[in-house]
Simulated assay, not measured.
Amino acid sequence: MNAYKFFLEFHSGFRYIVVLLVLAAIFTAFAGLLGKKPYTEGNRKLNLFALISAHTQLLIGIVLYFLSPFVRFGGGVMKDPDARYWTVEHLAMMIFAIVLITIGHSKSKKASLPSEKHRVIALFYLLAFITVVVAILQSHRPFFGMSH
């Protein structure tokens, strides 16, 4: 197994951890907001682990980007739809999603009321998740083993 194949499999498999943590953070944030629950240390840790997993996935993706046969630093990427998707569109949308998660986490740390902490996490993490789903659907590949 070469380095590209290793990082491709690692990146592909690690996405499940990221998605599960982000979804768990979204669901607990909505539950906390709608149930008027306190913002607990468990909430903080879950949100932090979701943030860390997303950033880790980005780092794995960056390594994969430079190992990828799609990356051609001499041009021609924009003419090839597959190469353009993986080198420009996928990267941009995933970075945008991670920025949303980072902003949400930062704003939740600064908020003083538990309801505000839950609201910010629910909003920003949900927007990030939607961005990731749209990016995956744009790839025209199966989504978590399901065709679309």
Rank of each mutant, 00 (worst) to 15 (best):
A50K: 06
V71W: 15
I26V: 15
A29L: 08
A29K: 09
M78G: 14
A54L: 04
L59Q: 01
K36Y: 05
L33N: 07
V77P: 05
F30Q: 06
L33H: 11
G35V: 04
R44W: 02
F73M: 13
L59T: 07
Y65G: 07
G42S: 15
F49A: 08
G74H: 14
T56R: 05
Y39K: 05
I60A: 00
K37W: 07
L64I: 01
G76P: 05
G35M: 08
L46F: 02
Y65A: 02
L46N: 05
P38W: 04
F27N: 10
Q57D: 01
S53E: 04
Q57V: 01
G35F: 02
D80Y: 07
G42W: 12
E41N: 13
F73Q: 12
V71T: 12
T28N: 11
A50V: 11
I62D: 01
L59Y: 09
A29F: 10
L58K: 00
G76F: 10
I60P: 00
I26S: 09
F66E: 07
P38M: 05
T28W: 13
E41I: 12
G75C: 09
G35H: 06
L46R: 09
Y65M: 05
K79T: 14
I60V: 14
F27S: 11
K37S: 08
G74I: 14
L51E: 00
T28L: 14
F73P: 03
K45V: 12
D80I: 07
F49H: 09
S68I: 01
L67F: 04
T56E: 07
Y39V: 03
I62W: 02
F27L: 15
V63L: 08
L64D: 01
F66P: 06
F27H: 09
N43V: 01
S68D: 04
T28H: 14
T28Y: 15
D80T: 03
K36N: 13
K36L: 00
I52F: 09
I52A: 15
G75V: 10
V71M: 12
F49V: 07
T28C: 13
T40D: 06
L51P: 05
F30V: 12
T28I: 12
M78E: 11
V71P: 03
G32P: 10
F66Q: 00
T56Y: 02
L64M: 08
K45C: 04
